[in-house]
Computed example of a mutant assay.
Amino acid sequence: MMLPIPNNSHYMPPTFVLIGIPGLKDGAVSTSIVFCALYILAILGNGTILYVIKTEESLHTPMFFFLSMLAINDIAFSSSTVPKTLGIFWLNDGVIDATSCLVQMFFVHCLSVIESGILASMAYDRFMAICSPLRYHSVLTASLLEKIAFAILVRAIMVISPIPVLVGQLQYCSDNIVVHSYCDHMAVVNVACGDKQLDSVYGLVVSLSITGFDLFFIGLSYTMILRSIFKMPSKDARHKAVGTCGSHICVIISAYLPGIFSFVTYRFGRKTIPHNVHIFLANIYILVPAFLNPIIYGVKTKQIRRRVLCILTQNPKAFLLSY
């Protein structure tokens, strides 16, 4: 499907056409149903987490502040791509105007950077809780939490804002077909026919630097946490300390593993891995963590589990008995 493009190749086409996941005709219906189900469950799960934290005063702590941030980000992250992807599957509506495409590109990558920052902040929270428990509440004050949240947001906006600007300045010749289910940065860059080196290098530098810094910070935090755990005198204390980190470690794995695999295969494995696999993994990277995070914290966090049970059974005593 081709749409008219201005004669001046320095301009972006007025619209792009997203083709979804190529080569998936036979499994399009089942894939779309799975995506839709995961999206709905992600919205419900993260919405429940937010409601529980907001309505239960005992959960108004730094740990659950960061968890609230993660839940909000997961809702926004999945909502930035899934509705359009489902529109492609169900309505064959892959047309998106250039401005909307750039806006989607900004939000997708900005929210990805925000999620990475939140996970790094949660590692710091666990470090303070285990390594300096007596100073935990005096250090992680409401003022500091607000500054951390603001810094995470500003960092994401600053590093991602140049991406749609650079993409908008590329030369586009006679093609407006984006081989993807949403306006991914490199997918749109590949449509251009001019010099793409600056865009590719900037995207690579941002991805490596942000992910590298946050993973280094998380690794450093957990190295110090493990040192403190090994110094604890009793087995029960060590077991309890590890338990407080279990949820966060699971979330880190679910967030970074598919993201890193998708990034590496897209950048360096395009000749060996089919393109539809790249696109499928890119969607999984957004959907699966948003779906899993509420389950992980709901199962592993006693306060949330009991509060949800209280809501479902309409039994206020259920929550009190958990203590």
Rank of each mutant, 00 (worst) to 15 (best):
Y222S: 08
C250I: 00
H109F: 07
M1D: 10
L220P: 01
L166E: 11
T99Q: 08
P289I: 02
L226Y: 13
V242L: 12
R270L: 01
L119K: 01
G246F: 13
F16T: 03
C310E: 15
V277T: 05
G194D: 10
S207W: 15
G246T: 03
L312K: 05
C250L: 13
L18H: 02
Y256Q: 08
C131A: 11
A151T: 09
C193E: 14
H185C: 03
I286A: 03
M128N: 04
K300S: 10
I295K: 08
I75M: 14
M1L: 03
K235Q: 12
P14Y: 06
I177G: 04
L198V: 08
V52I: 12
I160D: 07
K235L: 11
C110G: 02
D184E: 14
I286V: 07
P83S: 03
L226V: 02
S174F: 13
I229M: 11
S262T: 06
L312Q: 11
F280C: 07
C310G: 13
M232Q: 04
P133Q: 06
L226E: 12
M12S: 10
I279A: 00
I53N: 10
I33G: 04
T61G: 07
V154H: 05
H278R: 05
M224S: 13
S132C: 00
E115P: 01
L50Y: 12
I114D: 00
V205L: 15
L44E: 05
T244E: 15
A318I: 14
K240R: 07
S174M: 09
I118V: 06
R155T: 09
K300M: 14
K317P: 09
N293T: 04
